[in-house]
Every structure is written in structure tokens, then in C-alpha cells.
Write a protein that binds this DNA or RNA. Structure first.
Ligand code: FES
Ligand code: FES
Lengths: 134, 134
DNA sequence: TCATCATGCAACTATCGCAGTTACAAAGAA
DNA sequence: TTCTTTGTAACTGCGATAGTTGCATGATGA
């Protein structure tokens, strides 16, 4: 695994689980399937659980399970749950005095925000259950 | 300077130069103005020169100058000249066997490509000369 | 009850991208 | 020829993140 793999891991796992929504899976199983580490899986899926997409349970027969019907989980839900952005942001200029820099930053930031919204909107058009049949 | 500052540096410098298009500036002057290093400036502006937005000359009275009228240089021109992307890309799954992973990657990649196009289109609506008056 | 299994989490390592820096070669003007 | 400026390679430092180890916590069931 390399860069930006959190979203890939999350989507892969959820799409896989969408095939058998009732099935409980351990982070070890998921990690082996995805070719990564159980701790990494728990880190990523933990965010999805916090967002209400998954539930997790400890102990015997514990593990991870979908918390919603797969057709009610869109790619945007997953993207937002991870709380990361695939669109870069520009940092505020620290020299807040120059109006040119301000105008520039504003302009670019506006465009990037619009683009982020476009991304989320496009992702919301597909649910994880649609991936299997796609 | 921190992250994703190449575009910021490029736009700042070009917008600044748009105020006096005929003026020649050295990378030292530009670096001092932008609060960074001359070598970094040359690295970034070198890309803009390769893309035909700037010209550079060595020796006495040498330096950097706009190669086009500022109203003919759009933010998209600058963005594309840098040959970097502000929209993340997902990497091809190495296990090319699973159709689910393929479908997933395809879907996400399609969305990201669309979003990148949207970004470029939005950036092409503004020229660097418009920033000053904005 | 208590051994076992799973998650939760903290801490550490390895790696990658990138800004910053140093050093020097190459080219052009005075 | 000498000074100035770009062009580039090589290195350092930093931040982000995947991977790893270790252990605490809690649930299950024998
Ligand atoms: S800080 Fe204002 S133009 Fe550079
Ligand atoms: S569903 Fe995981 S590799 Fe195909």
C-alpha cells in the first residue's frame, strides 16, 4: 500500500461486504484480503464506524459489520467519513497585508471549494452496492 | 513555505509581474519578495518558461520577464505548466484479477478525472491580470 | 470464573514528497 | 576578463502516512 490508500481500502472493504451484508468480519480477515495490516484496517474502519457506516464488536464472534443497507451507503458517505480531502488546499498567506495575495488566495480557494463540492456530488451518485453490478 | 506552494509561488510571482510586464526581475529579487529561496524560484519559474509563459536570460541585466501579455495568461495556464495535480489520483490495483476492484477503481478514477477537468475549466476563467483588479 | 478472542490505542519505524540549502558549471553583458 | 545571473545536481530537514509492535479493554463461552 502506498499513498491515498485509505479511501481505496475503505471502499474496497465496504464493497466487498456489500455482497453479504450480514456477515461479520475481523480486521485480520479484512487485512489479509486487502493485503495490509489489521491495525491499519482498524484505523480506517474506525472512522467509518464513527460516521455510522459500520459497527464493531469485541470478543468471540466479534468484528465488523455494515451498519446500514449497502444501497444506502454512497461513495460520498465513505469519502466524508474519512475526513480527508482529495483536493489540495492552499494555505492562507501569512503576510496578510498585501491585497494582491489576498485576492489571489481567495480566487484559488473559491475554485478549490467548488471543485470539492463537485467531487462530493459526483461521489454521492453511486452507492457501494452499485459497484458490484457495474 | 510549506505544502502545495509551487502554484502559490507561481501565481504570486506572475500576478506581481503583471503589474509591470516589461520589468525584468532576478530570481533573488523574486525569492526575497516571496520569502523563499532563489533556487526554488528558478525551479518553479523554469517550468513556466518551458511552457512559454516566461522567458529567462543570463548575465548582466538578465532575469525573468513575462513572455506574453498578462491578460493572455490564465490561472489554468499556470496550473498546467507546473504539471502537477491538486486532485489526488488513486493508484491502479496491482491485483488486476478482481473485477470488483477494477470497477471500483474505474468509478473513482472517472470521477477524479472529471473533477480535474472542472478545476482546469474554472481556472481558465481568470487571467493573472484580473487578479490585481479583483 | 477465567481463558480466549477481538477491538482500541499509543508509540515507534520506514518511506516518500517537497521546500530549502549549498556548491558549482555555463552563458551572457560590461 | 570579470562579474552577474541562470541552470542543475546533491544534500538536508520536515511532515504525512503506512506499517509494525505491544498492551489494555471488553465480550464471549467453556
Ligand atoms: S506580497 Fe503583494 S505582490 Fe507580492
Ligand atoms: S473484493 Fe477484494 S479483491 Fe475482489
Amino acid at each position: 500500500m502506498k499513498r491515498n490508500s485509505r479511501l481505496s481500502l475503505a471502499l474496497h472493504t465496504l464493497s466487498h461486504m456489500a455482497g453479504e451484508p450480514a456477515q461479520v468480519r475481523t480486521s485480520s480477515d479484512i487485512a489479509e484480503h486487502a493485503g495490509t495490516n489489521p491495525v491499519v484496517v482498524r484505523r480506517v474502519l474506525g472512522r467509518l464506524r464513527d460516521a455510522g457506516l459500520l459497527s464493531s464488536e469485541k470478543g468471540h464472534a466479534g468484528g465488523w459489520r455494515l451498519a446500514r443497507a449497502p444501497q444506502d451507503i454512497t461513495l460520498a458517505d465513505v469519502y466524508l467519513a474519512l475526513n480527508e480531502s482529495l483536493v489540495a488546499s492552499t494555505e492562507e498567506p501569512e503576510t496578510a497585508e498585501c491585497s494582491l495575495e489576498h485576492a489571489l488566495h481567495r480566487r484559488v480557494a473559491d475554485v478549490l471549494e467548488d471543485v470539492e463540492k463537485t467531487l462530493i456530488h459526483r461521489l454521492s451518485e453511486t452507492s457501494i452496492s452499485e459497484i458490484r453490478g457495474a
